[in-house]
Each structure stands twice: as structure tokens, then as C-alpha cells.
């Protein structure tokens, strides 16, 4: 602020150009440095979640959707979209599938992964990967253990439904969280959408495996 005289247009343009250039350089450097770490964090979170939603599993294999069929994923790391994960125990016995799915919640997209056992046709676990639900209320879909426990043995037929808190009776019903009905319903909806999309593919893959 020392100069009282007005700077000419060239000075102004030069100042902003230099500021923009330096800022761009800094941002590119930071982005290049952090991008692999960020991706790694997301993958680590997904990987940990797979083993959590399929209890007892220790190894996993990724399958991606190609031409309406599940094919083994070839490439480094984990596929982040349109994929399911077969989870096995130490002896290589298939325990179930981790199925990622996402959809609109109360505030923003909720993305979650749930475990599915094709033999008993039940859901065996659920973990929210990303959500911006209301802290203290909607985020109970992550923090409320009673709600999360709903998904430990949940029948999927005819479809998963959410019922009022404490009125769960049938095997396909989920107790909603009182005060967070919309978030609870959203989770159920997302799971049904995942079922609709992936279960036929998983069933088809199983048939072709058993009858070579």
C-alpha cells in the first residue's frame, strides 16, 4: 500500500499473471504429491471394508462388470467402480461377496459396501464408505451399532424394507434409527439397488462355474 500513484495496466496484468502462475505451480506440485496417497487411502478403506462386511474372510478377488458379465479384474490394485469382490477364508473357501453400491442420502451421496452370502441369500454385513449425513443424527448409519447390526443376517427376499424403530419382525426388515428415518431408508434403498444390479450377475457367474 506504499505507492500512492496508480500502477499502469501492465503492472496489474503482470502481478496477477505472476500470482496465478506461482499458485498454479504450487497446486500442481501438491496435487501430484498427494494424489497417490489419496487414492491409496480410498483403496485401503475399501479393502478393509470388504473383509469387515464378509466376516472371517482374509483374501479377496475383484470382478468387474463387462458386457453384462462378471469377469476377473485385471490390473493393479482395486477397481473403484462397477465391481464386486469375492471374499475367501484362509483355505480359499468362498464366504461371500462384497458389493459396493451408492445412492442419494439425506444430504449427499451415500456410498457403502455390503456383504452377501449367495448360499443363504442373506446380507451378512454393511459398512458406509462415504456420506455427509447430518452429524449426530444421520451419521448414526455409521456410528449406531444397533443399526449396523441389522445387516448381520438380513434376508433379501422379496426385498429389504425399513420399519419403525423397534418393530423389526420379519427377516427382511431393518429397524430404522429414530430421528434419522430418511438416512435409514436411503441405506435400504441403496442395498436394494445393489441387489438388483449385481445379484443376477453373481448368480449367472455361479451357474457357469458349476457347469463347465
Amino acid at each position: 500500500m506504499s505507492s500512492v500513484k496508480r500502477a499502469g495496466p501492465f503492472r496489474l496484468i503482470l502481478t496477477l499473471a505472476v500470482a496465478g502462475f506461482v499458485s498454479g505451480l504450487v497446486l500442481v506440485t501438491v496435487y501430484v504429491r498427494t494424489a497417490p496417497l489419496i487414492l491409496e487411502n480410498q483403496k485401503a478403506a475399501l479393502e478393509a471394508a470388504i473383509f469387515k462386511v464378509v466376516p472371517g474372510s482374509t483374501t479377496r478377488k475383484a470382478f468387474e462388470v463387462k458386457d453384462n458379465k462378471l469377469v476377473p479384474f485385471e490390473g493393479d490394485g482395486l477397481p473403484m467402480e462397477d465391481a464386486v469382490f469375492a471374499a475367501y477364508d484362509d483355505n480359499g473357501v468362498l464366504l461371500g461377496y462384497g458389493i459396493p453400491s451408492e445412492g442419494p442420502g439425506f444430504q449427499d451421496t451415500i456410498s457403502l459396501i455390503y456383504g452377501y452370502n449367495p448360499e443363504t441369500r442373506t446380507i451378512i454385513g454393511m459398512e458406509v464408505l462415504e456420506s455427509k449425513e447430518t452429524p449426530g443424527l444421520g451419521d448414526k448409519i455409521i456410528k449406531d451399532q444397533d443399526f449396523v447390526d441389522n445387516f448381520k443376517a438380513l434376508a433379501i427376499e422379496p426385498e429389504v424394507v425399513s420399519v419403525k424403530t423397534g418393530t423389526r419382525e420379519a427377516a427382511n426388515e431393518v429397524d430404522s434409527i429414530s430421528g434419522a428415518t430418511i438416512s435409514s431408508k436411503a441405506v435400504v434403498k441403496i442395498i436394494n439397488a445393489g441387489n438388483e444390479k449385481f445379484l443376477p450377475l453373481i448368480a449367472a457367474a455361479h451357474e457357469s462355474e458349476e457347469q463347465p
Binding site: S3, A7, R11, L12, T15, L16, A19, S23
Partner: peptide, 17 residues
């Protein structure tokens, strides 16, 4: 950089920073 930033573009420069 306060002496290098011309008055007319100071807000823009601050925002960039």
C-alpha cells in the same frame, strides 16, 4: 509482498493466495 501488489488488484491477489 505488500509493496509489490498494486492497490487496484490487491483483493484479487489476496484471494489467489
Amino acid at each position: 509482498f505488500r509493496n509489490l501488489i498494486p492497490k487496484q488488484v490487491r483483493i484479487t491477489s489476496f484471494i489467489i493466495i
